[in-house]
């Protein structure tokens, strides 16, 4: 069957939140709010004594300087 004939096309437009709401998939797990870590600035985190985190943050700072070169996205390759 051609994909264009399907009701479950890859754009997700014909989906469970249409007429068939009773069948919709509900999220599971702990649904409470996360602690807001976005309040932590990179400058504040620079004082954190955690070498691994410091290396990660160094990469994130470098990436923030060159957002147009963010290429590492597709899951099935490096």
């Amino acid at each position: 069957m051609d994909s264009s004939d399907r009701t479950d096309s890859a754009d997700g437009t014909e989906s469970a939140d249409g007429a068939d709401g009773a069948d919709r998939v509900e999220p599971t797990g702990d649904l409470s709010a996360l602690p807001d870590l976005t309040e932590l600035s990179l400058a504040e985190l620079a004082t954190v004594q955690h070498p691994l985190l410091q290396e990660v943050l160094a990469d994130l700072r470098e990436r923030a300087r060159r957002p147009s070169e963010m290429l590492w996205g597709w899951a099935n390759s490096f």
Binding site: T7, D8, D11, S15, D20, T28
Partner: peptide, 24 residues
């Protein structure tokens, strides 16, 4: 989800919740 397309939570919803909260 067959017949419902892609506009659903991930089948890994609970796993992702657990992992993200753990990292946080």
């Amino acid at each position: 989800r067959a017949g419902h397309g892609f506009r659903n939570p991930s089948v890994y919803c609970a796993d992702l919740q657990r992992f993200i909260r753990h990292v946080a």
